[in-house]
Design a protein around this nucleic acid. Sequence first.
DNA 1: GCCGTTAAAGAATGATCGTTCTATATTGAT
DNA 2: ATCAATATAGAACGATCATTCTTTAACGGC
Lengths: 199, 199
Amino acid sequence: MPRPKSFDEAQVLEGAVALFRERGFEGTSMPDLTRKLGICRQSLYNTFGDKKGLYLKALENYGNKEAQSKLALLQGPGSPLENLRTLIRGFASYATTCPAEGCLTVTALVNSREDADALAAVSQHVQSLENGIECALTRAKKQGQINAHTDAASLARYITTSLYGIGLLVRLPDSSARIAATVSHLMESLQRIEIQPAA
Amino acid sequence: MPRPKSFDEAQVLEGAVALFRERGFEGTSMPDLTRKLGICRQSLYNTFGDKKGLYLKALENYGNKEAQSKLALLQGPGSPLENLRTLIRGFASYATTCPAEGCLTVTALVNSREDADALAAVSQHVQSLENGIECALTRAKKQGQINAHTDAASLARYITTSLYGIGLLVRLPDSSARIAATVSHLMESLQRIEIQPAA
DNA sequence: GCCGTTAAAGAATGATCGTTCTATATTGAT
DNA sequence: ATCAATATAGAACGATCATTCTTTAACGGC
């Protein structure tokens, strides 16, 4: 039987994600990849087809990981509303602590105008976040935690848009006040629909 | 005296903006530019130095134009609050009608991680929009049109972030519902601080 | 030990990139 | 008419790109 692969595919994908995050698709060259990943050209081509194949795999890998962790947080123990608040806070603190690298989904969205595959992957990622938020809001509604008239879908769309606004503007050098203000107003939006338990 | 330039620099910049919007900085080649702009290589180099110089000029041109039209709208006749509403609606309708090309500021922001000059231009553009919104809110406050306790700076930061969230997510193929929801909630935020005139 | 598969290293391909150089033509003021 | 500066056209540069090919070595089941 064949000689076993001497590299871990998942580990290679992680390295590729890191590079694509730093420099984007066009800004990352195959020599860059082989150098960083410690793998020779041919192995890359044998495993992923070509550069775009590797990129799509990396995108998928990143998106799934991010989506999973966020959905897990939203569906975790604790009240759905509080989980949503934690998600929003986490988004902001993550955004402010490591402004150097940006969200790969944002980068890919901007640079995939002519790449239907990449755009589809990004779209799915955004949708899954939005759906997760909507589900959390619906659960909160069923539990009587928020106003019964709340349009969960509409609110989820709005929160998603604002979160991605943060994910975009975090790339500016002076974004911390802007991010804090956005989080604060998002929190206010949630508080306004919350049904305060009788104290 | 020298032979006069046979091309209009402003017109060339407009064409460059269009190309950079479509394909980004790295995706636009010098042959692309000369073809589209109807100008020979050498003239480009003589006028703008190099490709990056042309890019920065185009970025500046685009940003100034956008900022001017938006600030003019905000400072125009009519109540500041209504002007702000018009701005937000215009942002959304513009976003939904021509989803093919995206905001150049968004593209440049994502792709300028290693380009301090471009980043500075983008930052200034975002700041000017944010400042314009803050000024409009402050004027609305002085005119007694909105709640006196409103934190104009914070609200302006939040609106700016959400607007750029729209400018980013408009690149997704199915973004119209998301944009509509975001606009709707932004409007709600404004209505909540508005002091209703006695009917 | 053999064989099929893979890894590794490096050369080579063809294309495209940004930029520069050369040569020639065109214009406007003097 | 002359001159300075620009326009245009095209060749050429060196660099880099993604990809393929070639060769040699390493491994595992038979």
